[in-house]
């Protein structure tokens, strides 16, 4: 298996810090795409702004690196314009759910067929370690020196409530699971969300005394559990991984095809 063909190697080395989880996401993503046998020409990857967003530049697809929080809005224009394209939208947690929160819930509500990857490192890395809406209460960040009092979102519950028809969570420790979930999300005909917990040892780890990348990956191993496991019953503070929502419901572009047919049959009946 050659995953190198998916990389724009002339643009390496990448900008991510040593120990960052985003490279693992990049690896999992291209392995999922490889396993699906998709042509590079049919994939459009749209990102916003932040550490996560740089993933698009390194990948040999049609890539669009947009504005902070707006990736899903750009992606919606691409998808509705050319529904045959496979649209994948990697975002950071602040990108997707703070500045981009409105676009996130509306893309989910429309159930437009694209795959949103939320690379959740619980911090604004590129700007130097400020807290995000996923940091959680009690955590420390460069803008929460006394401890964060902003509660966090549950991305899976939010996406499900907003109407996403495929919702999953995994981590950069569980790479095989990540590949499988991204694969299923891409195959899903509707708006799919995969939240990937991705370590930021440089800021989140350092600010919260969680150690380096290895310790943070171990934390993912020990503090997460498969959905519906007995471990969760024994320890409700564990974070669940797996597929939270998977349902068939009308997809936006398919519904628009019906509007096109309706409008065009009206056209043939009534000549202006």
């Amino acid at each position: 298996m050659s995953i190198h063909k998916y990389l724009r190697e002339r643009f390496f080395p990448h900008i991510w810090c040593a120990g960052c989880g985003h490279g693992t996401v990049l690896n999992g993503l291209i392995r999922a795409i490889e396993s699906l046998g998709l042509s590079r020409n049919e994939i459009v990857m749209v990102s916003g702004i932040g550490c996560s967003s740089r993933i698009t530049g390194y990948l040999d697809f049609h890539t669009l690196h947009t504005l902070h929080g707006r990736a899903l809005a750009f992606a919606t224009g691409i998808k509705l314009s050319k529904p045959e394209l496979n649209v994948i939208v990697p975002m950071g947690d602040g990108d997707a759910l703070a500045i981009g929160g409105n676009h996130f819930i509306h893309a989910a509500r429309r159930n437009i067929a694209m795959t949103a990857l939320v690379m959740n490192n619980r911090i604004y890395g590129m700007t130097g370690g400020q807290f995000s809406p996923l940091s959680g209460c009690g955590m420390t960040a460069t803008t929460a020196p006394y401890a964060n009092i902003d509660p966090d979102f549950d991305v899976a519950a939010l996406a499900t409530a907003a109407g996403a028809s495929f919702v999953a969570r995994t981590t950069t420790f569980h790479v095989k699971e990540m590949i499988d979930l991204i694969r299923q999300a891409i195959l899903h005909d509707g708006f799919s969300v995969v939240e990937i917990l991705s370590q930021c040892p440089t800021y989140f780890g350092r600010k919260n005394k969680m150690g380096g990348a290895v310790e943070m990956l171990n934390w993912y191993k020990e503090r997460t559990t498969p959905l519906g496991s007995k471990a969760k019953q024994n320890d409700p503070s564990l974070i669940e991984r797996g597929i939270f929502m998977q349902v068939d419901k009308p997809e936006y572009c398919s519904q628009y095809e019906k509007i096109l047919q309706k409008a065009q049959s009206a056209n043939s009946q009534t000549k202006e």
Binding site: V46, L64, T66, L67, R70, A73, F74, A75, T76, G77, I78, K79, L80, S81, N102, H103, H106
Partner: peptide
């Protein structure tokens, strides 16, 4: 905001 972004994508 989204409208302007969507037309750029299209």
């Amino acid at each position: 905001i989204a409208s302007m972004c969507a037309i750029i994508g299209a």
